[in-house]
Each structure stands twice: as structure tokens, then as C-alpha cells.
Design a protein around this nucleic acid. Structure first.
Lengths: 344, 344
DNA sequence: TTGTATGCGTTATCAC
DNA sequence: GTGATAACGCATACAA
């Protein structure tokens, strides 16, 4: 039951009475080794069940074939799906994914990045936390020459690539859809504008209103956290203050869900009295008794593309130049029950 | 923008005109070094922004402070939450978590484990795939002396610890709850018995019926995959064959959801005509317009405990003995709307 | 208390 | 084509 002996290239070299260097060359398919010894080495390597020691290789080469992914929470479907996309793309290439969560906390984020750098990861994928304002800890990654890719929640740092979705477009489409369904008094319950994504969703909402000659009413603009409870509170607030509205475009599915609860509790019918559109296409949205219209972000695809950008980047680094690549994915509107005005 | 020079203990030793060995000792707080030089070393280490090279340490010590987690899918809430629990417990101790998903595929599982072992992880946490029958690849982990911990979906392998929930108890309680609500003709839509968890849930259901002197009707026993679609099909099957039932205990929330859809589509009222209980307490269950009664598995706690078992195990290994620890957590029944018979 | 030498497993740079 | 040797950065047995 004790540790099995690890077989090294020396074991092979001894058995074959050749040098370890030759074994190494044979294993790496160098052309400076005879076909005969190459075959011999490969054969005995298999016999002895030789496994290359990744650690020694990493120490020597500086590459670990590990990448780090830093997200606010790993058990949020969106982030878990992005990670899955990254993993699917990178695993066939021999990479491992190390995940870190920040709990929306900058200090934690900085610490995670530091230890990741110390572990000599080959690259970092990050979706910044809500509280991240200073980006010193992120710039350090770039300055150390470690490939860095933002996804979804990015910061503007020169020389860093990113993969995001077009939040403006998503919001614009969602709002336009509500307008086309006949809703004219649309509230927007968004998130903190410190995060670009929420700012862009807000902008898209405003642009859609203006494009359709609808007035912008400040009373209909709220910024809340992305939780069911916040959604309940937001609608309570609107109702309490007698602010009239016939639709809600929410920047979060959770908020939309909470909002719908509160609306129903107050006798409003959805979508007859109030239309509702969320954002993210969280899995639960389509399972609701009255499925929620929402904007999908193709998170798995986002992860896959982020991984591809990373792979391009490491070959670029070898060529000694750095490109800043900004990929913007198109969101997709899932039109479901909560926004279809009957008879329209 | 190029790679920053990494500072090593040699840089410190040169600057201080002492040997690298002394620096190493000072950094490791050895008592075989004078307080004066210790302070000096620590000071210059900070000045030079010295970072220990984890790779070299790993090569030397054999410990990487990385652990692997192998799950069927990382973007399933249950598994993501377990991972989060593991991560929360291990991160403060300096460990990193490497995640791998098998997509319910044994071959993939074997491959993932193999590469994990090759990366010299310090331990492996695993929830086996649905298709895992032979456990050779898992026994190899144990045989290599790498700490191994099963969680949720385990296999019986001697010398391996596990953290699971008491599925029998969860199913027993769920079924008993339905009986107490007045349902007497309870169908059980379960999963493949190759996975212990589904077998145990089945056993718990049967035991509850017998304990309350209710007959076991084979027509009411189905085994399906854990998807919404499978739930729809299952109920369709029951209805088509005129098999009467007044409640469903499902081993999966997804199946329960699909089942409810189909029931409503056929004019059945829930919970008046048919009571429904699911399993897992997936996040969406409580957001449904009519929240679903379900059995919660405390996944975060499961992860935390698995991590604790791991930590115990590595200290045990040092002491040169191995304990097999089986932790069984108690599930929790979340009684919600779908199983409360009106007026009872 | 400190320094020297060696090894962890590999690969790259020399020689031959 | 092949072999000897150094180096990656660290920790430790042994000397001093």
C-alpha cells in the first residue's frame, strides 16, 4: 500500500545501457537519434510504464500546463458554464484548470492572483469582482508576462484581451421586444454601473427607448443587487411610490423572478398587466410555470473562445509580440411567456 | 513588457554574502540559524520581493499543494457547490483545486485521473460517473498512495474514505411525508441502481411504504435519467397505461419538474390531485410558482467535510497508517407547496 | 551557526 | 547518433 516507485528516464537508460540524454531525445521524437534506439526506448518505456514527471518538466521549462480561472462564485451557473467551456477547449491540449473564487471581494481576488502567479500557471482567465476598482493586482499579471484574458466582466487595461458579450445589444433587443409587444412604460431594474456590463445594459435600454421615441423616466430606473430579494424590494419600492409601469426589463434573472413574485402578490397579471424580461438565461427561467423571457449569454461558447484567445496568445508570446484581442459575442433573446402581450 | 526576472534564494545569498543554504534555513524559520541573519534574510527577501518557487519545492518535496476534483459535470449546481465547499476549506491551507469533468464517461474519468496523478496532485476527490463499473483506474490512485476521497457517488473500495448523504433516510422521510399528507398510492420515479444513491433512495421509499403498511406496486416503479424530458416521458407512460397514482416521489428534481408539467398538461392539479416530492433541492425548486418539496443534500457542507477528511488523511499518511473514514450526512426535507394536501 | 555538496527528473549544450 | 554535464530553485545531510 505504500508509494509506488516512479520510473524515470534513468531507469530506461540503465536497462538499455544508453544515456538518459538519449532516452530523453527518443521520447521527444528528436531526429538526432537513430530509429532503432527510438523504437527500443519507446518499447521499454511502455513496458516499465514510464510517466513523464510533469514537475521536473515544469521546473525546467517554466511551463506548467496549468491555467487559473478567477470568478466571483463558481456555483453560479453562468460562471460554471464558462469554466466548462474553457476546460473543454484546453483539456485536449493537456492543460489543467485551476479555479478560484473571490466571493466578489477585491482583496481575495488579489490574493488568489498572487498565489496563482506563484504556482507558475501558464495563463489567467478572470471575471472581476464587483468591488474591484483598483487594478494594480491585475496589471501585475500582464507585467509578469503571463497571458491574461478577461471574460464577461472586464476592466480596461491596455494590452489585455477580453471576451465579452454585447450587453448593449442584448438590452436593446430586449427593450425593443417589449416595445413591439405594446408596452410603453418600461422600468429598468439594473445593477451597479461600476461593472461595465450593467452600464452597457442600461445604455442599451435607453437607446431602445429613444429609438422608439419613448420618454426616459428617471423614476423607472433602479440599481440593485442581483438577488431574488432585491427584485422583491425593487417592485415594492415602485408600487409604494405609485410609480406606474407596464413592463420591467431587469439586468438579472433573479431580480426578475423576485419582481414577478411581488407583482403577483399584488394582483398583477404577467404578461397581461406587466411584461417582464430578465437577463442571463439562468436554467430555472425556462422551467418556471410561466417561462421567463430573457437574454442568453452563451457562457460555454464564451469560455471556449476565451481559451482559444489564450492559445493564440501563447504562440504569439513565443514570437515575441503581444496582441490585444477583444472578442464580443452576440447575445440571444429567448422570447418566452412573460413578455408576450395577449392578442398582439 | 517581458518576463520579470524571478528572484531566488541565490539572489538573496549573494546580496548578503552568505550561502543559499542559510537563506533557505532562515526562510523556513529553522532554529539552526542566528536570529540576526534570520532577520536580515527576511528583510532583504521582502525588499527583493522574493517569492518561493512552488515548482522547485514540489519537485524536491513531492508535494504540490494541488488537489484534483473529479465530477460528472461542473456546471451542475450540486457538484459546483461541493467543489466550492472543498475550495473554501482547502484554500486557506494553501491548496489549489484542479477540477475535471467526466461527462458521465468512464474512459474520460480514467484519463482524467491518470493525468491528475501525473501532475502529482496531493489528493483526489471523486464522484464517480454513471457509467463507471470497473474501478481499476480508481484503485490505482489508492495503490499509488495518493489520498482518495469519494463524495456522494461512491464505489466500495477498501481503504478509501467517503462522504455521502443518507439517501435511504432522505427517501424514507420524503415518502413518509407524502403518506402523512394522506397520499396512499405513491409512484417512485428513480434512477439507475448501478449508482448506489439511486438504489438507496429506492430502498428508503420501499421501507417507508412497508412501515406504514402500504402495498408495493411494481407498476409504480420506474427508472429513468435525471432530466426534465425523462420526467415528462415517465408520467406519459403511467397515464397511457392507466396506472393510477396520487403522488410521485422522484429521485431527481428535474424529473419531478418534467412530471409536473405533464400532469398539469393532462388536467391534474398539484398538490390536490397528485403530490410531488423531488430530490436535491436544486435552486430552481424554490423559485417555482408552486415551490417543490424536495430533499436537500447540503453540498457545500459535503465538500467541506470531504476536505477535512483529506486533511486528516495526509497527516495520517505521515504517521504511516491509513484509516478508512465513512462520513454520512443527514439530508433535510424541504417541505413546500407541491406535497401539502389541502385541508389535511 | 554556517557552508558545501547533492538530488529531485528533465532537457539543452556541448563535446565526441 | 550518442554521451557527459549543467541547469531549473530548493532543501537537507554532512562537514566544518
Amino acid at each position: 500500500m505504500r508509494q509506488k516507485e516512479k520510473v524515470t528516464i534513468y531507469d530506461i537508460s540503465k536497462k538499455l545501457n544508453i544515456s538518459a540524454a538519449t532516452v530523453s531525445r527518443a521520447l521527444n521524437d528528436s531526429d538526432r537519434v537513430s530509429l532503432k534506439t527510438k523504437e527500443l526506448v519507446l518499447k521499454t518505456a511502455k513496458e516499465l510504464n514510464y510517466q513523464q514527471n510533469a514537475l521536473a518538466l515544469a521546473l525546467k521549462s517554466g511551463r506548467t500546463f496549468n491555467v487559473g480561472v478567477v470568478v466571483p462564485y463558481i456555483n453560479h451557473t453562468f460562471f460554471a458554464s464558462v469554466i466548462r467551456g474553457i476546460e473543454e477547449e484546453l483539456e485536449p491540449k493537456g492543460y489543467h484548470v485551476i479555479i478560484c473564487q473571490t466571493h466578489e471581494n477585491v482583496e481575495s481576488e488579489a490574493k488568489q492572483i498572487k498565489t496563482l502567479l506563484n504556482t507558475h500557471i501558464d495563463g489567467i482567465f478572470i471575471s472581476v469582482s464587483k468591488t474591484t476598482e483598483s487594478v494594480k493586482h491585475i496589471e501585475e499579471v500582464r507585467d509578469e508576462g503571463v497571458p491574461l484574458i478577461f471574460f464577461d466582466r472586464k476592466k480596461d487595461i491596455s494590452g489585455v484581451s477580453s471576451v465579452t458579450i454585447n450587453d448593449f445589444e442584448g438590452a436593446y433587443e430586449a427593450t425593443t421586444h417589449l416595445i413591439q409587444q405594446g408596452y410603453t412604460n418600461i422600468a429598468h431594474i439594473g445593477g451597479d454601473h461600476k461593472l461595465e456590463i450593467y452600464k452597457h445594459r442600461y445604455d442599451g435600454y435607453i437607446a431602445a427607448l429613444k429609438a422608439h421615441n419613448l420618454p426616459v423616466n428617471d423614476d423607472l430606473l433602479l440599481q440593485v443587487n442581483s438577488t431574488v430579494e432585491a427584485g422583491i424590494e425593487a417592485v415594492k419600492f415602485l408600487l409604494k411610490n405609485n410609480i406606474s409601469f407596464d413592463a420591467i426589463f431587469s439586468a438579472s434573472d433573479y431580480v426578475a423572478l423576485g419582481g414577478m413574485r411581488e407583482l403577483r402578490a399584488n394582483g398583477f397579471k404577467i404578461p397581461e398587466d406587466v411584461g417582464v424580461v430578465g437577463f442571463s438565461n439562468e436554467p430555472f427561467t425556462k422551467y418556471l410555470e410561466r417561462p421567463l423571457t430573457t437574454v442568453g449569454q452563451t457562457p460555454v461558447l464564451m469560455g471556449q473562445i476565451a481559451a482559444q484567445v489564450f492559445l493564440e496568445q501563447i504562440t504569439d508570446v513565443k514570437k515575441n509580440f503581444r496582441v490585444e484581442k477583444k472578442v464580443v459575442l452576440s447575445p440571444e433573446l429567448y422570447t418566452r411567456d412573460t413578455s408576450i402581450k395577449k392578442g398582439s
